[in-house]
Write a protein that binds this DNA or RNA. Structure first.
Length: 842
RNA sequence: GGCCGAGUGGUGAAAUUGGCAUACACGCAACACUUAAAAUGUUGUGGGCGCAAGCUCGUGCGGGUUCAAGUCCCGCCUCGGCCACCA
């Protein structure tokens, strides 16, 4: 047998597995008869295990070490769950539409179809090279007409239910990408992709009415096994808040204004009203008055500042008086001056707020412009109360204080009075209980080429009609120019325009926009269950068989958008009768980021990028996999260490060497002669450790603790080598086989090579069952227990596992080093935690 | 500003969930093999004191609970992530 050269066999086995179809066609088992539930099942419904890694965008630069970590983790799970008898479904697909390919086309003129195909080929090759046991038979790509046909179908279903609608709305526009961006794609006022300042623009846009499902998107989180932080972020994003909406008349005008307030306790403190600069009512208020010019100039200035992204609410806290007053009969004949204020948010609530002394921003604003304030709550300390009432500082409404007004509630506590005040406001003609959300409907229109065309056509009067289902897939035209013009590229396609007139009539025109790629990627896990179906997006039985996804691994960057959208689609399709699950992803975790050796995020400009191909060329794919899994906990950010990689290579070489000695040796019965006693003892110890290792590796994989699983395997190898050199004890072949098997999910290539060539097995190691743990071997008969005196470890005793306290104490008191610390030879108290520790208190 | 997470050797990190702190690995040092290097192997490796057995301090800082705290409680400090004008 030659030395360990991974390049000798890794690619051979990768090709062989594909040829033998080892991990293939699981989706075809989609079945009609569900499998009987397994007792081994710890996750998943019955015996199925749907494993999913976030839909990858096939970028031109190829696979990154950051992809290798989650891919390997899922692959380990896939191989492990298969060997304990689960039906594993582990499909692969490509989130293939999107801006980078189109931007590249703008630069080079190479069509996105071509670059995307190349990129997918590169990714596929690399993923196969690291041995990911994907089911390639279920491969899908969102840019394929066979896929986007159903994305368009989904759009039409939403349209039929009025959950897809068109509206003229101010949108975020990126001047560089020449496209509309969703709120979520605007980062600090700049475009998420190119960093250009985003501007506001009004356009007719298509929306999905995700807000229809807001309450269920909140309540559904309860049942999910997701990281706590992720759930919280979703909650914050939806931003539900309950309160009161009150409506009042503007003095001397025929205008009513509504305001939302989630802190209605302040209502008697409210002394002025602010309105967002973007609000159309601003113009109505000042139109034709002597304030019109000044106010509208202010509005323009603030809007521009906000659009540029440089708006800072503390620095730019400013406003202007409209000259109008809001009638406020809740406080007698009080009139609230109406101000346009830079910090009022048009998109939230009604865009109009009544302000009081009990809010930091309101307080600062009022002080700045000399607007009177009227505090109604104060602290219990009388000195402090005087300061608050004389407006020395803002006593924030989140503090627990004593209510002064309204009089019927006087003397009660702030937090406790809230509900009663809402009831009171509801009993007046002005208020009603109300709920507000931060979540907006989902803007899906994109003035872009490389996406799924929106399946809508317009008649000559401009009315929207659905593209007929028999015309799906509504093909993306190819005769387009990629130069950005601010128009949708599809507008200039001759074929596209002619197609519509031919199919629908003279003067009919297509919708030129394409869909946000998040639409494509928010239902792909359903298509996987029935990827070649041409009649339906997926058969109901197929989805019933596999859904929900049992384990989903995605990067933390997808916490908000992708997950909310996917949950929305799932709930919609359930309501339409296609699906029987409420939530798509039962269990989810996030992989951490692999940082550069300098502990910073990898990037070309920093020159700290590690290329997985280089690592494979030097050490092989097994080493790369082992290293990334050994680095640390999967959900944590971890720096790459160039030198540490060799540690894994060294370990694999040692394993390889061990199996050199195995070939040809037979399982021998060791004679129980005197000189053989060491051997027997060593062998017993080794076998016992092997079974503990098998158990721990399995447990660790199920808990995603891949780093400690590997450490455990290493400990076993250390022991194995020591036994060979100390007592000349070799393990039996059947035990060596078990060892190889538990290593095989981590290092699939080397273990396969040794399994077949060294152990002479005919079937792949990856089809072999996980070794059974012999529970009787897990028990040790004697253990070493640390002995503490007054809480400090002073010695150890060797005792039987089941020995009771008095025996252990007796043993401990025989030990000279221990007795040294018990000068009086007596003790007050003894604490013995069975098998763990003995503490003697003197 | 809000929410979440994290601080353990020279480095990446373990710690059966309150029970021997530093498993496993990297690095480093010495030795063996070698003409030499690489590779490999052996031994050592938290700080201080000591020839040594051993003692003592030690998980960001300060307190507390407990027979026992990296782990639980209270108060700080530092770093990272996300959201940030949401009334």
């Amino acid at each position: 047998m030659s030395k360990y050269f991974p390049s000798d066999f890794e690619e051979k086995w990768a090709a062989q597995w594909v040829e033998d179809g080892l991990f293939q066609q699981t989706f075809e088992q989609t079945g009609i008869t569900p499998d009987p539930p397994s007792h081994k099942a710890t996750e998943g419904r019955g015996n199925k295990m749907y494993l999913l890694y976030a839909f990858a965008y096939p970028s031109g630069s190829g696979l990154h070490v950051g992809h290798v970590e989650p891919l390997t983790a899922l692959d380990i799970m896939a191989r492990y769950y298969r060997s304990i008898g689960k039906k594993v479904f582990f499909p692969v697909g490509w989130d293939a539409f999107g801006l980078p390919a189109e931007n590249y086309a703008i630069q080079t003129g190479i069509p996105p179809v071509k670059t995307t195909k190349d990129a997918i080929n590169t990714f596929s090759r690399q993923i196969k090279r690291i041995g990911v046991s994907y089911d390639w038979g279920a491969e899908i790509a969102t840019c394929h007409p066979g896929y986007y046909k159903w994305t368009q179908w989904l759009f039409l279903q939403l349209y039929k239910k009025k959950l897809a609608y068109k509206k003229d709305a101010p949108v975020n526009w990126c001047p560089s990408c020449q496209t509309v961006l969703a709120n979520e794609q605007v980062v600090e006022g700049t475009c998420e992709r190119c960093g250009t300042d985003v501007v506001q623009k009004k356009m007719e846009q298509w929306f999905f009415k995700i807000t229809q499902y807001m309450d269920e998107l909140i309540s559904g989180l309860g049942s999910l096994d997701w990281p706590k932080a992720t759930k919280l972020q979703q909650l914050n994003w939806i931003g539900k808040s309950e309160g009161v909406t009150t409506t009042f008349k503007v003095q001397d005008m025929d205008i009513e204004m509504s305001v939302f307030d989630s802190v209605p306790q302040t209502y008697m403190a409210q002394t002025f009203t602010i309105i967002a600069p973007e609000h159309p009512l601003v113009y109505e208020l000042v139109k034709g008055t002597d304030r019109e010019e000044e106010v509208m100039a202010f509005v323009e200035r603030v809007k521009k500042k906000k659009a540029s992204g440089s708006f800072d609410f503390e620095k730019d806290l400013e406003g202007i008086f409209t000259g109008k007053y809001l009638e406020y009969p809740l406080a007698g004949d009080r009139k609230l001056p109406i101000w346009v204020a830079s910090f009022a948010v048009y998109e939230y609530g009604t865009g109009i707020v009544n302000c009081s002394a009990h809010d930091d921003r309101d307080f600062i604003f009022a002080k700045k412009y000399g607007i009177p304030l009227h505090p109604v709550m104060h602290p219990e300390d009388p000195d402090e109360a005087t300061k608050v009432m004389s407006l020395e500082y803002c006593y924030h409404h989140e503090h627990e204080g004593i209510i002064e007004e309204p009089l019927p509630f006087k003397g009660r506590r702030w937090g406790e009075v809230r509900s009663d005040i809402i009831d009171y406001l509801e009993s007046t003609p002005y208020g009603r209980r109300d709920t507000n959300y931060k979540l907006r409907d989902w803007l899906i229109s994109r003035q872009r080429y490389w996406g799924a065309p929106i399946p809508i056509v317009y008649d000559p009067e401009g009315n929207a009609h659905m593209v007929k289902e028999e015309h799906l897939p509504w093909m993306l035209p190819t005769d387009v120019d990629f130069k950005p013009t601010g128009e949708s590229p599809l507008r200039l396609s001759k074929e596209f325009n002619e197609r519509v007139e031919k199919l629908y009539g003279k003067g009919w025109t297509p919708e030129y926009d394409t869909m946000d790629t998040f639409v494509d990627s928010s239902w792909y896990y359903l298509r996987f269950t029935d990827p070649r179906n041409e009649q339906e997006f997926a058969r109901t039985e197929a989805m019933k068989k596999w859904m929900p996804v049992d384990f989903y691994m995605i990067g933390p960057e997808h916490i908000v958008l992708h997950l909310l959208y996917s949950r929305f689609f799932t709930k919609f399709l359930r309501d339409e009768g296609y699906l029987s699950v409420d939530e798509p992803f039962a269990k989810m975790r996030h992989q951490g980021m692999i940082l550069g050796p300098d502990h910073r995020k990898m990037s070309k400009s920093k020159g700290n990028v590690i290329n997985p191909d280089d690592v494979i060329n030097e050490y092989g794919a097994d080493t790369l996999r082992m290293y990334e899994m050994f680095l640390g906990p999967i959900d944590q950010d971890k720096p790459w260490n160039v030198e540490s990689v060799q540690g894994q290579y060294r370990f694999l070489k040692r394993v390889w060497k061990m199996f050199e000695g195995i070939k040809g040796s037979k399982d021998q019965k060791i004679k129980r002669s005197k000189d053989q006693e060491d051997k027997v003892k060593g062998k017993t110890q080794l076998v016992s450790l092997l079974h503990r290792t098998i158990k721990k590796v399995g447990d660790d994989i199920e808990q995603l603790k891949f780093n400690t699983a590997i450490a455990t395997i290493m400990e076993f190898l250390n022991m194995w080598e020591r036994q060979i050199s100390n007592s000349k004890t070799q393990m039996s072949i059947s035990d060596a086989r078990k060892f190889l098997k538990i290593l095989s999910p981590f290092a699939p290539f080397m273990t396969e090579e040794l399994w077949r060539n060294q152990l002479g097995e005919k079937e792949s190691i990856h089809m072999a069952p996980w070794p059974q743990v012999d529970e009787s071997l897990l028990q040790k008969s004697t253990i070493i227990v640390p002995v503490q005196v007054n809480g400090k470890v002073r010695g150890r005793v060797d005792i039987g596992v089941n020995d009771e306290e008095d025996i252990v104490v007796e043993q401990a008191l025989k030990d000279e080093t221990i007795i040294k610390f018990i000068p009086e030879k007596t003790y007050k108290k003894v604490i013995y935690i069975k098998g763990k520790i003995l503490n003697i208190i003197v």
